[in-house]
């Protein structure tokens, strides 16, 4: 086998080795954590009844999947995705409107500030009364938690556009619409992607919180129920599934980021 020794090859090899090293360490951290957890419960230094254990979680997961786990997962996932998508789209449209009209922005500014600092969970009872307990109200809760932050951050990213670039486009005779979709929007893409990342986290918060207070199905419901009947295994198993789902959704957004990065010749900025 030939070993290329150009600086480039060396650099690439070093980089790949670095990547492999990090990945190994990441796996090791997880293995040590799970191993210690399992060991401590096996030797009964800590009580698996209170803290569960990896093996018990696995067994519980097996049980759950043979019973009616899928519908619970499906409901939570659907609530989260719908809440996320609706709030992202609505938030985007609202941010565009606020960017478009200075008057609208100035009129609504104090309301947005107040809404932003309001803990949305406080609206739980009202939501239940208005739309009833169930999927709709949970999507509503998710929506409320996501929307304000979405509007504020997206608007912020639109307004951050360089004034000189706007002048440049105006001097070319560009309309406001053209300035928006040829300059302001593509300029905001990196921030928009961070908003999506933050939002996906918030959507999970909204969904699970919503399920805590007003649901009879879903992972959040299972967690609360498991806590009430002291089935820590059930709680942990549900949390594991949550982690996997949240991770997957984050991964999808990271792919989106990669897509834009590629299209822009290697950098988002």
């Amino acid at each position: 086998m030939k070993k290329p020794c150009t600086p480039r090859a060396l650099y690439l090899r070093k980089k790949r080795n670095g990547k492999i090293k990090v990945l190994c360490l990441q796996v090791a951290v997880l293995a040590v954590f799970l191993g210690a957890w399992e060991f401590l419960t096996q030797v009964r230094l800590v009580d698996a009844f209170f803290v569960s254990s990896p093996s018990r979680i696995l067994i519980k997961l097996g049980q759950l999947f043979r019973q009616d786990f899928m519908p619970h997962i499906g409901i939570t996932l659907l609530e989260c995705i719908l809440g996320f998508v609706i709030s992202t789209i609505a938030g985007f449209l609202a941010a565009v409107a606020l960017w478009w009209s200075d008057t609208l922005r100035r009129v609504l500014d104090p309301y947005i500030v107040v809404l932003n600092s309001l803990p949305k969970i406080a609206l739980g009872p009202i939501i239940i009364i208005w739309v009833g307990a169930g999927m709709k109200s949970i999507i509503m809760m998710t929506f409320l938690i996501c929307i304000v932050v979405t509007v504020i951050s997206m608007l912020q990213s639109f307004l951050a556009c360089d004034k000189n670039k706007v002048f440049l486009m105006q001097s070319m005779g560009a309309s406001k619409l053209q300035i928006f979709y040829k300059l302001v929007l593509p300029n905001a893409v990196p921030e928009l992607i961070s908003v999506l990342k933050i939002n996906i986290g918030l959507a999970w918060v909204g969904t699970i919180m919503g399920e805590y207070i007003m649901s009879s199905a879903g992972l959040g419901h299972l967690i609360i129920y498991g806590g009430q009947v002291f089935q820590i295994d059930l709680v942990m198993a549900s949390i594991v599934v949550l982690c996997v789902l949240a991770g997957l959704m984050y991964f999808l957004i990271a792919r989106l980021e990669k897509f834009f990065r590629k299209r822009r010749g290697g950098s988002l900025q």
């Binding site: 000189n164 002048f167 440049l168 105006q170 001097s171 070319m172 005779g173 560009a174």
Partner: peptide, 10 residues
């Protein structure tokens, strides 16, 4: 108003 008949370089 702006007409697109000038080229602005900053």
């Amino acid at each position: 108003g702006t007409s697109g008949e000038v080229g602005y370089m900053l």
